[in-house]
Structure formats: C-alpha cells, structure tokens
Design a protein around this nucleic acid. Sequence first.
DNA 1: GTGAAAGCGCTAACAG
DNA 2: CTGTTAGCGCTTTCAC
Lengths: 356, 356
Amino acid sequence: MQRGRNVSKLTLQKVAELAGVSRSTVSRVVNHHPSVKPAVRQRVQKVIDETGYHPDPAARSLANQRSGIIGLVIPRVFQSLFTDPYYPRLMQGISQACNTHNYILSLFLFHTEDEEQKLTAKLLRQQLVDGIILSALPAGDPLVPQLIGSQMPTVMIGRPLEAQAISYVDVSNVDGADEAVAHLLKLGRQRIATITGPLNTTVGLDRRQGYRNALRNDDIAVDEALIVESDFTEAGGYQAARQLLEHRPDAIFAASDPMAMGALRALRDAGRRVPDDIAIIGFDDLPFAATAHPPLTTVRQPILRQGITAVEMLTDLLESGLRPTRQFTAPTELVIRQSCGANPKTHVDIDVNVRL
Amino acid sequence: MQRGRNVSKLTLQKVAELAGVSRSTVSRVVNHHPSVKPAVRQRVQKVIDETGYHPDPAARSLANQRSGIIGLVIPRVFQSLFTDPYYPRLMQGISQACNTHNYILSLFLFHTEDEEQKLTAKLLRQQLVDGIILSALPAGDPLVPQLIGSQMPTVMIGRPLEAQAISYVDVSNVDGADEAVAHLLKLGRQRIATITGPLNTTVGLDRRQGYRNALRNDDIAVDEALIVESDFTEAGGYQAARQLLEHRPDAIFAASDPMAMGALRALRDAGRRVPDDIAIIGFDDLPFAATAHPPLTTVRQPILRQGITAVEMLTDLLESGLRPTRQFTAPTELVIRQSCGANPKTHVDIDVNVRL
DNA sequence: GTGAAAGCGCTAACAG
DNA sequence: CTGTTAGCGCTTTCAC
C-alpha cells in the first residue's frame, strides 16, 4: 500500500487544532448542527475553507451507518433498451437529483444471471447503498419480493406487475394510449392496430389497455388479429408491422417510439405511404421522433422528471426514516406531428431540444 | 436513526466466535490470505456461508484506505451525446468490467458548471473513489491538468487534446476515416465532403485528418468549402449537409452516425437520392445504422471493448500501485452497407445484434 | 499459523 | 454551547 499519499492527511483532528476547538465542534460545523456559537462556527468554517478539508466518507459511513449512496439497479432483461435513449435520459434525471440532494449515484447493471444473484445479495445485505431505485421488472421477477423482504428503502420506476407494497413512480400509460388511439379514431381511422410491449410488463399491459379502452369507448369491437406483441425495439416493431400488414390496418399505435420507427420502416419497405395509407402513433417522444420521416406523432412521457421524482421520493424515505409507500403517476401528453395524418402541412420540427 | 435494523448485525467478531477463532483469522479467510491452515479456513468458510456474512464496506474502506469504487466522470459538455447510444454502450462495457473485477461503479454527470466545480473537488480530495474513468474533453478543459496534479489514478476515454502524461484508450480515428474516404474514392466519387465533429476535440480533429490523408493519398486537393464543422448530433448533421449541398458534393463522410442520419434526412428533403446522387458514410456503427434507409455504410468502433479496456487499465494501475501511463488504440473496421453505393443490391441487414 | 491490540476518521451520547 | 469519550467494523503489524 505504499501509494504515495505523501501529504499527511487532513483530518477532523487537524482542523480542530488549527481552529482551537475540539473535534466534535468541527464535526458539528461540518454537519450544520444548529448548536454552535456563530463566532466559533465562522472561525472553524474559515479553517475548513482554507485547508480545503473534506470529511472522509468511509469514516463517516462507518460512524453513522449510512453510505450516502443511492443505487440504480437495471436488470439484465432491459439491457436491450439501452440502445434507445430512454435509459440515458432517465439516468440523467436521477443523476441530477442525486447531485442536488448530495447523494452519490452507483450503477448496478446485471449482465448475467449469476451476476444478478451475487450483486443482489451484496446490495441487500451490506450497507453498500442507503436506498435503491429499481427499473421496472417483468412479471415474476424475484427481485421485488426480495427487496420488500429486506429492509432496503426502494423506489421503482414503473408500477410493479404484482401490486406490491412498494413505492413507485409511473406515467399514465393507460390514458396516454387511450388518447392516442382516440385521436386516430377521431381522424376517421377504422382498422386501428397496435404493437404492444412485452405483455409480462405493466407498461406493455397498460398501453394495450388504453388501446382497448379507446375502442370500447367508440363501441368498436377489438379484433385480436390487430394486436401484436413485441419488445419495444425497432427490429421488433418492424417484424410486428409486417405481420400486421396482412390484416390491412389503416392505423398503427406502437407502444414505443423505436417500435414506431420499425413500423415506419416496414411500411416503407412494403410501399405504403404514411400517413396517407396508414397512420402511425408512437409512445415516448424520444428525440428522434421529431426528425423521423414523416415526423412521428407520439405520446410524450416526462422521463427526466420521472427520474428526479424517484430520487426525491427515495431521499424523503431515507431522511424521514419512515417507510410509508408512495406512488406517483405522471401525466402524458399527445404530441401531434405528421405520422398520424392530422397535420399534413406542418413543417418538420427540428427543434428537438425543447423537451423536459 | 432508529431505522429498524432489528437483527443484530453480523460482524467479523460474531463469525469469529461461531467458528471458534479470532477476528484476525476470519479477516484472513475473507481476504484469501495464504497463511491460514486449510482445516481452519474450511471451518471458517463454512460459518461464513451459513450465516451469509459479508464484510461491511465502510469499515473495510476506513481500515485499508480504499473504497472499491471506480468513478465514471462525464462532463457537462457531452451530455448532449446522451441522446445517442454511444455513452450507454460505453457504460455497459465499463459496468461489465467493474462487475468482473469487483469494483462498484459510480456515475458522476455534471449538469452545471457549479456542480462540476464542487463534485470535482470532492472527487479529487477525498477517498470517494479509488480511480477515475474520464470521458473525452474539449481542448483547454481544466479537468485534465487537475487530475494529473492530483494523485488520482485516471484513464481517459479518447486521447486528450494536449498530449498529457495520462493513460487513455482510443480508437484509430485517423485510419478509420482514411479508410472510409479511400473507399469512396475507389468507388469513383470525385467531390467528397466531410462533416466533422467539434474541432476542439481529438475525435473531431483526427477524423478530419483521416479525410485529408485519404485525399492527399490520391493527390486530390482539399476544397475547404467541402469541410463543415458540426457537433456529432443528428440536427447538426442536417444543418451541415444543407450547407454542403450548395457545393455539389457527390459523397459525404460524416464523422458520426447521428450526423450521417441528419445528412440523410437533409438529402431526402432536398430530393437527392442516396447513394445514386450522393454517397454517405458515417462513423460508429450504432445500432440504427443497419436499419437506416438506406442502410448506412459506416466505420465501426468497438465501444464496449473500449469501456472494458479502460477499466482493466485502471484496475491494473490500482492493484499494481504503480503509476505508469499507458495508451491503447483499438482498430476500427469499415462496414459496407448501401449508403456508399458499393452494394446496391444487398438486402437490408436487420441482424443488429451481432456487434461487439 | 494464529491471536492481541492498535488504529483508520468520524459521529453521537453524555457531561459539564 | 462545547469537550470528553466510547464506539462504528475491519485490517494489520507484532508477538507468540
């Protein structure tokens, strides 16, 4: 360990000596404890600033039993989604909120089942992290019950499939999908198909439910042939759309923007015009939606905000010491561009940066 | 702090008692110290397994002066790139390697200048992380000298602009670009333009250099009007391509795939056919390149591998305790699809998953 | 090969 | 309001 730590380390003790007080007082100043006489506080703070003292996180963790770290856990199954900007954006929100709340963000991506096992055990047993933000999981994943069983404060991104006693932030998937499909109906589309997400996830199920609700609301019978399950990816959307083409839909509601892009590509390959022959609506409003060809009408969800909210819920839990479960559902918004056929003349919107 | 830590915590001490040895011995077993009699080791290990003991990371850090954490630092300037899959993929590689080397990965995204200041100070001064992986920085960023000045072991992703005494992993940007442009020349293109990345980054400069090298190699004079600087984004590529159109290029080499996509869109809007009127080659081989319309010829760089290599270089530094600087440059590979006009009949390759 | 003991740097009662 | 004191759980000489 002869790692050139030349300068003798700066500790509470040293600062205390320089300021002519005890360690406790310095500690109190560092931790913004109210009971320190202003004059003393000032004197100590001056020394801290001048010396550039920072408390040692390990010592601090050991003494007060918390790490100051929030863990973001993303299970193996969803790694594919890493090819679309959803996760990056979510992480941006989470990171931002961690910074403002003074937590360190650690990332736990599981790449193999084995890793998942081992890391999970570590995460739950040790004082590695103070709390966990967990991205949505498919049905029956053992992670959720494990977390609930443990004492680990957790907030999920997306409602868990089995309505568990756990906090989560979600978006109004049902209503968002409903609104999209209702919009297609209003535009006179008759045979509206949908490409769903995986039906072992709430996101997949909820958006399909919204689709059904909209049809039912217009007294239109659901044609099961017009519902194809896919996987949220571009390639999946492509395949699904090819399959749907045989049933001659005049509109497709894709439960994610990448799938909508895949559908767009399939239709182009098949020589169909969008929106003239077939209208398309996606879900997410990812950056590329605005510059797609044609620009994609889609249901915007506030991804960044979701991440921020998740962190805030978690830090609330951590700081209150209580453990009530809370839920938050963010609204969605239908962003009308050209692929739905409502706006045939509008110019391409290249101002991709005006997003939450 | 009455945080329902009901079960009295499992410590070295307890394990020692159960196994009938001293704490030191348990510690030795946990740390795979050689000098423990096999019989004893086995007995202790059994207790560890049965009780599910895991050492407390904070206590461990405090005692041995290392956190077991690697910090991934991504400066503010590059957050825009978060909309393309480059960073996610890099993070995947880094995370994977961290897992296998038993390090925790912490993420430091700077969102404001202020945050950058404060977090950097924290990062460098404290024992927060054992080492840092730093994504590339534009010229003149103070972070690099700061890092070098500190004792913090660091590996950069991408060669720093000022050739510093620092370790990094890079890709052969010059040769990759050269190969792409040479390929266009071989196909008979005469007026080859390029959309560069920001010219205050090595990536931007190197790829432009490759472009120049290829032309020079064919004794073609460089027409500065055919070189437009952009920012690696789709929107930037779109603007740059519009600008280039006035100078009637018959091919465009874009220094990133998103910019190539933007160029594609600009050409489509302008009624030019790709590759018939204008050929396009990108750089990255991001997942969407294969499914673009037309499929994008591009220079593939092994992003995942870069991340893994960076972690391995860093853990080597950490474990050897030495601090030699090392450099690694990964090769690139030209992936020929249809946008360059070499392959007019090939079918769309939707097998996007076969990538490193 | 194993145990005893001295910290690592900080927090948090408890006195005063 | 401030100082004293006792740990937090582990690693690591140093003896035996």
